[in-house]
Structures are given as structure tokens and as C-alpha cells.
Design a protein around this nucleic acid. Structure first.
Lengths: 147, 147
DNA sequence: CTCAATGCAAACTGTTTGCAACCGC
DNA sequence: GCGGTTGCAAACAGTTTGCATTGAG
């Protein structure tokens, strides 16, 4: 909970930039954010932030378990705040809309695999891809270019 | 099966480069290859190939269902030949070793989700991450730097 | 006062694009 | 020979790194 304590106990420092970034993550819990997204939003709280700070901070946050990376189609990087409860995503191929999948049946799978192999599973990622309702109804493919 | 026919029927052409790339994919069925990997291997069959050809060809192959993209940790791109039977991967965080997961329970999940939402699921990706036996036994973390 | 952290800009890496030459069909 | 395809090089986009400066503890 306490960011300052969490950082200091490991020899890191609590800076306004890190607070701003954590704030952004908190306000967007459950929504994967790109470094660019975070930069733009955190920049409003803490003007003048460099993009490099975002990358460095997100690496740190992931290492500390404060955030985690999300792997979506396209291979770009996204991050979310780690609130303990696990979930996955469904992404629309046409417009990019994301929907949350609360359930995580994969934990069961991972457990199964754990028994049948030499791997020690520590994390996993899963995403479903397809078309959302809007894109299916109107025009079929690539609808929402830009408004 | 017949690459030439498959291409021509859609107005595309069969070139030595495309044959070389398909050959590489075939010989590495089940193993995710990066564009770089493919470039290096196909270059031995067909010297002088440009990297751009790899990217363009893989896009085409994916569109035609000849290959499919694999999403692993790190967000880089990988491809595999599409042999119909679906599978997933387990990747060692420490040394990068990949292991195949034959089973795909996600198809069931996808079906479940299909009923409970507006999405039309067309594909998905899942990968498990953890540590392989070797990395667990020897030295715990980051073993295989380079030889 | 010390050393971690930042902003900036340059360097990198992976991917895409424009274009003239090339070559399947 | 028409038009899809290629190699090359330049352009891009996202990410990383070096370094002088700043500022948390």
C-alpha cells in the first residue's frame, strides 16, 4: 500500500514522478496502459517528465510487484497496476476495444502443467482476439479508424 | 499443401524466396521463429534475401493461414507454420528455453466466453512463464547468459 | 552531503515504406 | 509485357543508454 515504504526498504527513493505514475496506474486499474499513455497522463500531474523515466519506473514497479506487464496483439508493451486479483483480456482485432475477463481458468491449467513437467510456473499470459459487437454489426472489418 | 496453388488462387505469385521461407517454417514446425531467425535460415537456401521480404512474406502467410504469430514474453514477434493442431508454449524466464504445451484447454474457455459476451472470438494466445529444471537446479536465476 | 533519480538527447533495435529493377505467369 | 515481388536504403517507432544536473534522505 505505502509506496514510500516499499521503495525505501529496498534502497529506492520516493519521488514525485513515481507518485504520479502510481496515481495514473491506480486510476486506470484493469486497463492496460502503454508507456506513452502513462507518460501523457502522468505528465499532467508532474509536468516535464521524460519518457525514459516512465520506462525506468515501470521496470522497477514490475520488479517490485507493484505493476505487471500485459501482452496484447502487436507486441507492444502495456502495464497495469497489480491489485492481486488476476484477469485477462479480450481484444477486438478491428477497433482495438478491450474487454476484461474476470475468470482465470488458466491457474488450473498451470497447476496441471506444473505436475506434469519440470517447469516452475511463475506467471502466464492469455488474450483472446476477435471482433466486438460494434465491429461485427457495422461494416464487418476495421470500423473505428479515428473519429 | 501446395503453396503455389494457394498463392495463385489469390492472385499472388510463387517465388523462390517464398518457397525458401516455407521450407524454413516446415523444418522448424512447433518452434517459434523470429523474423531474424527466418532471415538467417532462409538466406542459406536463397542467398541475398532482404529482411523486408521476410516481414512482407510472414504477413502474407499469416493472412493466408499458412503461418501464425506467437506472442511470447518481451513482446517480440515470432512465427510458426500452421499445421492445424493448436498448441501453446512454456518459456523459461531465466534461459529462454521453450517447451510445447500440446493441450489447449483455452478452446473451451473461448467457447464459454463466446456465449457470455458480444465478442466473436477468432484466435487467442497463451503462454506460461517460469523456470525450467536446469535453471532451478543450477544457480537459480539467470543461468544461460552465453556460452 | 551523498548517491539515487531525472531530463535530455543521442544511440539502438525492430519494423515499415518508397522505389527502381526484376521476374513469375 | 503486365503487374506482383524483391533488395536496398531511408524512414519510423518504440526503447535504451550516457551524462550532467537535481533532489530525496
Amino acid at each position: 500500500m505505502d509506496l514510500g515504504r516499499r521503495l525505501r526498504s529496498r534502497g529506492y527513493r520516493l519521488t514525485p514522478q513515481r507518485e504520479a505514475i502510481l496515481g495514473v496506474l491506480r486510476e486506470n486499474a484493469g486497463r492496460p496502459l502503454s508507456p506513452e499513455d502513462i507518460h501523457a497522463m502522468a505528465g499532467k500531474k508532474q509536468p516535464g517528465m521524460g519518457i525514459a523515466t516512465i520506462y525506468r519506473t515501470m521496470d522497477l514497479f514490475c520488479e517490485l510487484g507493484i505493476a505487471f506487464p500485459v501482452h496484447l496483439r502487436g507486441g507492444y508493451r502495456f502495464y497495469e497496476i497489480n491489485l492481486g486479483k488476476h484477469h485477462h483480456h479480450m481484444e477486438c482485432i478491428a477497433c482495438g476495444k478491450l474487454e476484461l475477463l474476470e475468470a482465470c481458468v488458466i491457474d488450473d491449467i498451470a497447476e496441471l502443467v506444473r505436475d506434469g513437467s519440470d517447469f516452475l510456473i511463475t506467471s502466464h499470459c492469455m488474450s483472446l482476439f476477435g471482433y466486438c459487437r460494434q465491429c461485427l454489426e457495422g461494416g464487418k472489418e476495421k470500423e473505428a479508424a479515428e473519429s
